[in-house]
Design a protein around this nucleic acid. Structure first.
Length: 267
DNA sequence: ACCACCTCCTGATCGC
DNA sequence: TGCGATCAGGAGGTGG
């Protein structure tokens, strides 16, 4: 499940290869993933840059922009164009060099949206993406939290409030900040808000440095696997001793999401 | 403005 | 053993 570090890893991996490649043909095998893929002609477009906004990966082309989100299981692979389509491959972008970029997504939740340079930042989904933890002012964020009644975990998962965190890194962030995921957002103190933002920024930076987290079925792309799963403190650690106090980590549900927590360390 | 709930999907796992 | 039911989950849409 790509969160910010995984998307950044995919971006860095791909941009070493596909910059300046020229598109020859786009095949869309499942329309919902790339609704405009068969309507807009991308032939002759070159990849001019890759960007990332929150968990979105952006391919900048000569005239167009592809805004992609891999959701849980989306992956990109580069292959010889003659290689046959794999089982869950839904989009194939063929280049004039006879290589092709394949979008593979078991659950078909991901999206590749075609935008223009003029509108891609000012229209959904990117227009709705908030700042990343490292760029958020703690006092401003605390004021925002005061207006929210719901649990802090679903608040931190809301990309319109804070960008980049998913289920894995939220659990890690709240454990490091010593705040229970069920705590009402408006009851989080300014001091705790500062700790949450710092923990989130640190966790994302460290995970990015290690190439993200390889977990369940997810690989970033190109067979690149991250190493942050070895650094996880609580996520997936049900029944194991808390690394701080030794109390067994519990798995609970918060806002419908599987959540790992130490009830002694987190208040 | 805020928020709970539903939807999209498939593979893994559960229950009978 | 086999098969239907249930679950997981990021974010957009809906409706209270």
């Amino acid at each position: 499940m790509p969160e910010l570090p995984e998307v950044e890893t995919v971006k860095r991996t791909l941009e070493l290869k596909i910059l300046n490649w020229e598109i020859k043909k786009v095949h869309v095998y499942y329309e919902n993933i790339m609704p405009d893929g068969n309507k807009v002609n991308l032939e002759g477009e070159k990849i001019t840059a890759l960007e990332r906004v929150g968990k979105f990966l952006i391919f900048k082309l000569t005239n167009y922009v592809i805004v992609s989100h891999m959701r849980m299981e989306g992956r990109f692979f580069l292959k010889e164009d003659i290689e046959p389509k794999s089982k869950h491959e839904h989009v194939k972008i063929t280049f004039t060099n006879h290589l092709s970029l394949r979008y593979v997504d078991t659950r078909k939740f991901g999206r590749l949206l075609i935008k223009t340079h003029d509108n891609y930042l000012d229209t959904p989904p990117l227009s709705e993406v908030a700042k990343e933890p490292k760029d958020i002012d703690p006092k401003e964020f605390h004021e925002l939290l005061k207006r929210r009644q719901r649990a802090i975990k679903p608040t931190l998962l809301d990309q319109g409030i804070i960008a980049g965190l998913g289920n894995i890194y939220v659990d890690e962030t709240l454990f490091i900040a010593k705040v229970l995921p069920t705590r009402e957002s408006n009851l989080v103190t300014l001091d705790e808000t500062k700790k949450i933002l710092k923990a989130a920024a640190d966790v994302l930076a460290k995970a990015t440095k290690l190439g993200g987290t390889t977990i369940y079925t997810y690989e970033s792309s190109e067979g690149v696997t991250g190493r942050f799963q070895n650094e996880l403190l609580v996520h997936t650690k049900e029944g194991e001793p808390c690394p701080i106090c030794g109390t067994p980590i519990e798995k609970i549900k918060v806002g419908g999401r599987g959540t790992y927590v130490c009830f002694k360390c987190q208040k």
